[in-house]
Design a protein around this nucleic acid. Structure first.
Length: 882
RNA sequence: GCCGGGAUGGCGGAACUGGCAGACGCAGCGGACUCAAAAUCCGCCGAGGGCAACCUCGUGGGGGUUCGACCCCCCCUCCCGGCACCA
């Protein structure tokens, strides 16, 4: 692929002996020329089919939303992946390195409103622009597998999966309270609500609305999603911890409390409204209403300390009670109102606790005590059963609440090493003692047991007697996927007056998203205003049916896109099973940590569903996951609102793509935040310029070596070769896991500095041309993953005609890399006092003798008594004296 | 509050397994080249002291383990990220 004409077309690349002034690194010219050559070979970076004899390697970067502009975060993400993909290819792997577009989503609709541009056009032109940018930077993508999620050949498979999930009960419809963003005019998943606000509109408080919605039953997989985290050794602990917390497994017990019949419960209304005094044993006359209140607790061992039940304001029983009690209805309403106001005032997390006594009592099944039933604003509706038993003595929140409303507290847990209540204080708060070394008291037959033991016994007891059971609760909730938006995948469902909810038959897929639609700001689903879309025929009865007008959450698109990359043009199935079996799991996935819980949980869920559908045979899609740090500037994440955005285009125009991407790898290790400093890019550009001039200067000697290697190499030759092989070793080892590209680039700089420093010796003929040629070519190969344009240019200049991308990665020679002389620090009492130079193979005795013989050391040691000498082979000598 | 991650020169960072703290780059200073500037090249560049050889101090703070600690242990401060009334 390298042609003489092209390299000679470069004004600075004329062979001969250009003087330094004439040779100038011109990235714009070099990069434009190579970009053109690469563009002419569309399959340059294509993966080989599964029949390839090479081992496979799937490197994946998170696909971008096509906003129209790459930002520095993308550049960093993709530079990491590209360096890896290029190196793995040079190391002989069959590399799949695809790219695509997460192309559905709200911004397209907003743009449509603003500029009157159809979302499809807007999106596709953004994609074209970003693809140009990516090619300009020189990312080695296999575009033959490009996917665009907003096109029917992709989203039809979203619909296909939806139908499969519907068949298995994994997609279901229910009316539920959902998070509603007034600005987006749509529902948000729990994962898209941040601090009570919309993830896209930081100041927009999320409303709660009751809507019929489609859900994916991700909770069916909660335990497996949790368990499998421990197998993901190639994932950062941070991400695994975040997912573990998000899934939020709690072991405990569910206990049923009988609700007392209000008509017989209390004769004295006043007394009833002061529930603190009402903790009486249930008398025989008390009748159960037959209604039960189920409570979830992780501390059933404290149940003898329960002094009330607390229901969430939205609890169904509260609604029932309020219906019969206008005063209560009013109180509950004001409770909710207060809560809403507090949230609007910006309170997130815990707000002040309020509660209302319902006038009802429930019976503690363990001791038959009557417990007043309250409504508490601190009880979460959608966690556990939406009701708790309140144990003020041993729970901080219950304590706070009980103090405020003057409810009784009963101490039932004592630390093992104390005997009396007094010793632990009636002091406040009587907070939960650690369960390991505490015992139950005042707990009937369970008194004296350790907490953990009691928890098991009491849950079992409840189960035996039919009023409870051990249970596990998850924080994770089912994934609400309905969105009242236009620009998304239509949900392939029909509503027939006769047959109810009817799935669209596979043969009618895809349900096409209509192109012609007027986007307006009115609430609800835009598709509902398109009669051609809404009006359909019921496949069961042939009568009129109405189409579902909501579209799918765009996280559906990204939950399985990396499977489609393996077989993107398949029109019979989402992918061919064998092809995916070859490429999966993804060897390395790289992306921002902001996707640690949303995307990375959904896609794990999707994989497990696909396994259960028989499409794949494994349970986890990603072998190694890497979360790169953010790109920040002046101490803040780059953002339009902060005005600290640096445009990749600017950087490329000024310093070239090589310098820009290389700086993004040099300025910090990839997992840490990167502080963007333009002077640093200039520094990399200077370095590349030095490399360029060096190769230009000696390229001719590399092309046609005149001097052969002499029998015994000069000291300069040896030191250059040593450094060269040390550098190959360092970078090769680093790529297999450590990924400290910043120090790899620094190592290349050191090598270049050493060669530059040896120019007088090179000029004096001390370094044979063959060695020089080897150094320059190897340097070029080492540079290739980081600065592919310059590497390609120099590779050709040194007379190589092979495709750099497929040229084998250099191998290092341990013998050449080995130091023959080493420097050993000599310490006295741990303080550095001298350095001795000694043969690398010196024995311990020789090292010790050399250290003691050292002039400085000998002087300091005069008159001192040596008590010990510590000798670390090849590392140091430490002489301990009195 | 809970769970992660972090704090090293003027700045970004290096030191891989407890063994020379500050690699590499940026900024700065001095010099060469130039009529001059840019570019390039060479030198210096943690703090304090000393004419110098050198000495002392130094990795957020305090303690500890060790012949030896940026690294391990205990306590504390601050910064970043995630979760947050999850019973």
């Amino acid at each position: 692929m390298a042609t003489k004409e092209q390299s000679q077309a470069a004004p600075t690349a004329a062979p001969g002996d250009p003087s330094p002034q004439e040779v100038r690194y011109n990235p714009a010219e070099i990069e434009a020329r190579w970009a053109e050559r690469w563009a002419a070979q569309p399959d340059l970076y294509a993966a080989e089919p599964p029949s390839s004899a090479k081992p496979k390697y799937y490197v994946l970067e998170m696909l971008p939303y096509p906003s129209g502009q790459l930002h520095m975060g993308h550049v960093r993400n993709y530079s990491i992946g590209d360096a890896l993909a290029r190196q793995m290819r040079m190391r002989g792997f069959n590399v799949l390195h695809p790219m695509g577009w997460d192309a559905f989503g709200l911004p397209a609709e907003n743009a449509a409103l603003k500029n009157n541009t159809p979302p499809r056009e807007w999106t596709l032109s953004n994609i074209a622009a970003m693809k140009r940018q990516m090619n300009r930077i020189g990312f080695a993508y296999d575009w033959s597998n490009e996917i665009t999620t907003c096109l029917p050949d992709y989203y039809r498979w979203n619909q296909w999966f939806f139908l499969r999930m519907f068949e298995r009960g994994l997609a279901y419809r229910k009316k539920s309270k959902v998070n509603w963003c007034p600005q987006c005019a749509t529902v948000l998943a729990n994962e898209q609500v941040v601090d009570g606000c919309c993830w896209r509109h930081e100041d927009q408080l999320v409303d709660q609305r009751d809507l019929e919605q489609w859900f994916f039953r991700i909770t069916n997989y909660a335990q497996e999603l949790l368990d499998d985290l421990s197998k993901l050794d190639g994932w950062p602990d941070k991400v695994r911890t975040m997912q573990r917390n998000w899934i939020g497994r709690s072991e405990g017990a569910e206990i049923q409390f009988d609700l007392e019949d209000a008509s017989t419960a209390h004769e004295d209304e006043d007394k009833a409204r002061k529930p603190g005094t009402a903790l009486l044993p249930a008398s025989d006359q008390v009748k159960s209403t037959g209604q039960k209140i189920a409570v979830f607790t992780t501390r059933v061992d404290t149940i003898y300390g329960a002094t009330s039940l607390q229901l969430a304001p939205e609890h169904p029983l509260v609604k029932e009670m309020a219906a019969a009690d206008p005063a209560l209805a009013q109180s509950v309403a004001s409770l909710l109102d207060q809560q809403k106001k507090a949230r609007e005032a910006g309170d997130v997390g815990a707000i002040e606790k309020h509660g209302v006594f319902t006038g009802h009592y429930a019976i503690n099944p363990f001791n038959q005590e009557r417990l007043p039933v309250w409504v508490g604003n601190y009880i979460l509706t959608d966690y556990g059963t939406g009701a708790i038993m309140s144990v003020p003595a041993h729970d901080e929140r219950d304590f706070e609440f009980a103090k405020k409303y003057d409810l009784e507290m009963k101490v039932v847990i004592l630390p093992r090493n104390s005997n009396t209540v007094a010793e632990n204080g009636d002091r406040e708060p009587l907070l939960p003692f650690t369960t390991e070394d505490s015992l139950l008291m005042n707990s009937g037959d369970f008194s004296g047991h350790g907490c953990q033991e009691a928890q098991q016994k009491m849950a079992a007891f409840a189960q035996e007697h039919g009023f409870g059971k051990p249970t596990v609760t998850f924080r994770l909730k089912d994934w609400g996927v309905s969105r009242q938006r236009y620009w998304g995948t239509p949900i392939p469902m029909l509503y027939c007056p006769k047959d109810g909810i009817v799935p669209v038959p596979d043969s009618e897929l895809p349900v096409l998203l209509p192109d012609k639609i007027e986007i307006t700001q009115q609430g609800g689903s835009p598709l509902a205003h398109v009669p051609e879309f809404v009006n359909a025929t019921c496949p069961k009865c042939g009568g009129k049916a109405r189409r579902e007008t909501d579209t799918m959450d765009t996280f559906v698109d990204s939950s399985w896109y990396f499977y489609r990359y393996c077989d993107a043009r398949n029109d019979k199935a989402p992918f061919a099973t064998e092809t995916v079996a070859y490429w999966f799991p993804i060897d390395q996935y790289i992306g921002g940590v902001e996707h640690a819980i949303l995307h990375l949980i959904y896609s794990r869920f999707w994989t497990k569903v696909m396994r259960d559908l028989g499409l794949i045979k494994f349970s986890e899609p990603v072998d190694h996951q890497f979360s790169q740090g953010m790109v920040i500037k002046n101490g803040a994440k780059m953002s339009k609102s902060k005005g600290n955005v640096v445009s990749p285009d600017d950087m490329i125009a000024r310093y070239g793509a090589d310098a820009t991407r290389m700086y993004s790898l040099f300025a910090a290790p990839p997992d840490r935040d990167l502080d963007w400093q333009e002077d640093g890019v200039a520094g990399i550009s200077r370095f590349l310029s030095r490399v360029y001039r060096l190769v230009m200067k000696y390229g001719e000697r590399a092309r046609s070596p005149r001097s052969a290697a002499p029998a015994s190499p000069s000291a300069t030759t040896q030191s250059l070769q040593r450094k060269l092989h040390q550098t190959i070793r360092k970078i090769t080892e680093d790529f297999s896991g450590r990924w400290h590209f910043n120090t790899d680039i620094a190592a290349i700089m050191e090598l270049v500095n050493l060669v530059t420093g040896a120019e007088p010796q090179i000029a004096a003929g001390e370094v044979p041309d063959a060695v020089l040629a080897d150094i320059l070519r190897t340097l070029t190969l080492l540079l290739a993953p980081f600065a592919p344009y310059l590497a390609a240019e120099l590779w050709e200049y040194t007379g190589q005609t092979s495709n750099l991308l497929l040229t084998p990665w250099p191998k290092y020679d341990e013998a050449l890399a080995a130091e023959d002389q080493i420097e050993i620090p000599v310490q006295i009492n741990g303080k550095l006092r001298s350095l001795v130079h000694i043969d690398a193979n010196a024995t311990e005795d020789q090292v010790r003798d050399a250290a003691l013989a050292d002039e400085k050391i000998a002087t300091i040691l005069t008159g001192k008594e040596i008590t010990r000498i510590i000798l670390v082979p090849r590392k140091l000598v430490n002489i301990v004296v009195k």
